[in-house]
Design a protein around this nucleic acid. Structure first.
Length: 638
RNA sequence: GCCUCGGUAGCUUAGCUUGGAUGAGCGGCUGAUUUGUAAUCAGCAGGUCGAGGGUUCAAAUCCCUCCCGGGGCUCCA
């Protein structure tokens, strides 16, 4: 369909004479004058008849959009054959024009449709502003395109899912019958989020403000949206989290690899994946300007392509391969938010090759527990996330599997959201996620494990069993922490929620950029501080040597969420001690004199031991900038 | 991507309805103060009002397009 829009002061037309294909009309419709009008010249084309409903819908949509934009008061639909050389049949054209008329009327717009198949005279006066003349082409969806959909996508569209809850006792309860205890508020929010009855919030997510104020990360307007910049403090936190995840995965027995970040679109094994999410690829121009490479959206390809060239024996299984994978997903514009949803992110991605389903389930359970430990180490207890377990009906029909699911719920120690699919629509039969619910009541997945029964075959990954026969392994996909950036988001949101609950917000000690700040009361106390600094190796210490009042320095330390603040004045120098304010044990209440700053007097060795005790076993990096505040560069104002 | 709301100094913002020389606080710089637990005082500098176009004698203000951000839809391999 071809459309020509003219925003006019008025339009007049008069039907003069019938053509062969004229539609019968009443006398009153023969002559019209319409003021403040958007005139829509329409040529209905042959191919439009293939999918009239779609064309009508799209054309009305476009028309309404332009109508609103230019601020016209009414619409005239004017059949105009001369816009196309491939016209539809007269009957088909009238049908589609009537369809548009009805559609527009139903949307509350005043519409006149000029009679079809008449010789007409007309005059109109175009307003002449930049948008007063526009044209549009509506194209029928390609039949070919519809067929191109992968089988997986078709199955997904047909697949129906059902939600349940399972309580600690292992009872499967219909969502409608489930009663949320008071302390299960987050499970409820998570379920509401999943079942898509969301409510509007008109607030910048707390973590977005925090990531900037704390000089962690920021948007980079000159890049593609969703590709962030990380300031020194953010880079430090990110590195620490990455180190921690790497270390815990290594302890779990995985070998670390590195695979390319871009792949050929032509590779047969990658085709199905690509077809499923064509709009979300970052494509790279290749020969002749055509895209022939894409950026990976996970480490799956690289590791699968590597695995198919390995020689695996059943004796090696289960085999775990890990990669901390920078991944790229061109998420739709409106889906991006701060550190929660990015286009470029860092995904810990572990694949485990198992010889059969029995071994896969055993591993699945181990990794489920491992994920809980990893999150706990980062700073999330089971109170901080909600568990979702999803599987196919076929999987759950097996009684042994029913017990298996119950066991998982028992380990979680609280009710869990269950989703059951009536058929398998993608590569997995069972998965779980640990979901964080944020201050805006949105849920995001952190850890996840999936049991993949399809990709070994697709990629030709084989192992040799005891009888010297080649078999396809079952593959587990595991991200023990979820994206590193998402962990940072959740830590910030959690801190914000704690602040709302009356606590002082802070990051876990091992992730705090400055762990201990020394505040000299006067310049002469700096000497003493220099003396004790060598004792405090292995701790990120800085010194507020700026010419400010003590009050100001205390306040600034608080704004930076610094966990330990030591004030040094004459008293301390004399007694060789420190006056240490411990953030975790303090609380701020603005209301009169209720401040509970917990300040303890201790010597430097006590303080050191105390801090080391808490951060033991966690990665450590030095401060990424001068320990003197007076020498420090600001990365963000405010 | 679509719908919707927003973008004024490094940060937070007033002004926009009804067009008529961009104002403030924090931060920065300079000076004074050497300070004992959540903002010491004074002064100075800092703005093509997101970008481009239009209307107008005149645009931060009205209109259009684009960019960036928030929310909703959608989606999350």
């Amino acid at each position: 369909m071809q459309l020509l829009f003219i925003h006019s002061d008025y339009m007049e037309y008069e039907a003069k004479e019938k053509t062969r294909v004229a539609e019968p009309i009443s006398e009153s419709r023969k002559k019209e004058r319409i003021e403040e009008v958007l005139v829509v010249f329409v040529a209905v084309e042959r191919e439009d008849e293939k999918d009239a409903r779609y064309v009508v819908e799209k054309a009305s949509e476009e028309t309404i959009s332009i109508f609103n934009k230019v601020g016209a008061e009414r619409i005239v639909l004017y059949p105009y054959a001369h816009l196309s050389s491939e016209l539809a049949s007269p009957e088909g054209s009238i049908e589609i024009l009537r369809g548009m008329e009805e559609d527009l009327l139903s949307k509350g717009v005043e519409v006149k449709r000029a009679p079809f198949g008449w010789y007409k005279s007309f005059t109109l006066r175009c307003k002449g502003h930049p948008l007063s003349e526009l044209s549009r082409k509506i194209q029928v969806r390609e039949g070919v395109e519809a067929e191109k959909k992968s089988k997986a996508l078709e199955a997904e569209e047909k697949a129906e899912s059902h939600f349940f809850f399972m309580n600690e006792k292992g009872n499967l309860i219909k969502t409608a019958d489930f009663e949320f205890e008071e302390k299960r508020e987050n499970l409820k929010k998570f379920f509401v989020y999943e079942s898509e009855k969301r409510r509007e919030v008109d607030k910048i997510p707390p973590h977005v403000e925090l990531m900037r104020r704390l000089e962690i990360a920021d948007y980079e307007p000159s890049s593609d949206p969703g590709n962030l910049r990380f300031y020194p403090k953010g880079k430090l936190i990110k590195d620490l989290l990455e180190d921690y995840v790497k270390k815990s995965v290594a302890e779990y027995g995985a070998v670390e690899v590195e695979t390319p970040i871009m792949y050929s679109t032509g590779h047969p094994s990658l085709k199905d994946y690509l077809e499923r999410f064509p709009a979300r690829q970052y494509s790279m121009a290749g020969k002749g300007g055509k895209p022939d490479l894409f950026l990976r959206f996970s480490a799956c390809f690289g590791q699968f392509l590597m695995s198919k060239d390995m020689s695996m024996s059943y004796k090696n299984l289960p085999l775990k391969i890990f990669e901390l994978a920078s991944s790229f997903r061109k998420e739709k514009r409106g889906e991006l938010v701060g550190l929660r949803r990015l286009r470029k992110f860092t995904m810990p991605d572990m694949h485990t090759f198992c010889k059969d389903m029995g071994e896969a389930l055993k591993e699945f359970k181990r990794q489920y527990e491992q994920c809980m430990r990893v999150l706990d180490g980062i700073g999330f207890s089971t109170k901080d996330y909600e568990v979702a377990i999803r599987f196919t009906k076929e999987f759950y029909d097996d009684d042994a599997n029913k017990e298996f699911i119950k066991e998982l719920v028992r380990i979680a120690g609280k009710p869990v959201l269950i989703e059951m699919w009536d058929q398998r629509f993608f590569y997995f039969v069972l998965k779980f996620e640990f979901n964080f619910v944020d201050a805006l009541e949105k849920a995001s997945a952190l850890s996840t494990v999936q049991i993949d029964v399809e990709n070994a075959e697709r990629y030709g990954i084989k192992y040799v069993d005891a009888k010297d026969e080649e078999k396809s392994p079952i593959i587990l996909h595991c991200s023990p922490s979820g994206a590193i950036e998402r962990c940072m988001y959740a830590l910030l949101e959690k801190a914000y929620l704690e602040k709302e609950g009356g606590f002082l917000p802070m990051l876990p000690l091992w992730l705090s950029p400055t762990q201990l700040r020394m505040i000299p009361v006067a310049e002469r106390h700096l000497e003493y501080i220099d003396e004790i600094l060598p004792v405090l190796t292995g701790i990120r210490v800085d010194v507020d040597d700026r010419e400010e009042t003590v009050s100001k320095k205390i306040r600034d330390a608080g704004r930076e969420w610094i966990p330990y603040v030591a004030v040094v004045g004459d008293k301390e120098v004399e007694k060789k001690t420190l006056s240490v304010t411990i953030r975790e044990e303090s609380s701020k209440s603005q209301s009169k004199g209720e401040q509970k700053q917990k300040a303890e007097e201790m010597d430097v060795f006590e303080l050191k031991n105390r801090i080391e005790e808490i951060i033991r076993g966690k990665p450590f990096w030095e401060l990424p900038f001068s320990h003197k505040l007076s020498e420090r560069t600001r990365f963000v104002g405010g």
